[in-house]
């Protein structure tokens, strides 16, 4: 079993693997990554996972993620693990963390918020200590992180 897993993860030479994405969230992750076709991409959906039940996974050849992209993915898939591969070896493996502050990719759920009437990105301060609640910098409304919409 372990061997199978290893092969899956190491199937790309250089690049990024995002594992333990909650099943069903992979399409949003793909949207955020804006995969244009230059990189080889492998996607697994609804795979069994000891950690989270059912998971999605994505492997992208020759691609490193920006901090911004990692933050956005953390919002929609906080359970995910980020794995960096170099020469078929796992060189870094980290659990995603919901950031304290996010600026891109979020649509404020408040229709009266300035971010929905002007072409500006909403900014959120996230207080994930207990409640995983986030406050819009502009309209000051509080939302649960899981209720935030991602702008694609």
């Amino acid at each position: 079993m372990n061997q199978v897993k290893t092969i899956k993860v190491n199937a790309i030479k250089n690049g990024t693997v995002i594992d333990h994405i909650a099943a069903g969230k992979i399409l949003k992750v793909i949207d955020i990554l804006n995969l244009t076709g230059d990189n080889s991409v492998m996607v697994g959906m609804n795979l069994a996972s000891n950690k989270i039940g059912k998971k999605d996974i994505i492997k992208i050849e020759n691609r490193e993620l920006s901090k911004q992209e990692v933050n956005s993915i953390a919002i929609i898939a906080p359970s995910a693990t980020l794995i960096i591969i170099k020469d078929f070896e796992v060189v870094n493996k980290s659990q995603l963390e919901i950031p304290e502050y996010i600026e891109e990719h979020i649509i404020c759920p408040n229709p009266k918020c300035i971010t929905n009437s002007e072409n500006i990105s909403s900014k959120y301060y996230i207080n994930n200590s207990k409640t995983a609640s986030a406050r819009c910098l502009y309209c000051e409304k509080k939302y649960l992180v899981e209720d935030l919409k991602i702008k694609i």
Partner: peptide, 27 residues
């Protein structure tokens, strides 16, 4: 303004002081 966060945004755009005299149901 009736738009919430309008004054916060205005303060980012201009370099003179901004006073919020009411922004929607916010402040």
């Amino acid at each position: 303004s009736p738009i919430e966060g309008a004054a916060r945004y205005a303060a980012e755009v201009v370099d003179i002081p901004v006073v919020n005299a009411g922004d929607g149901a916010n402040q």
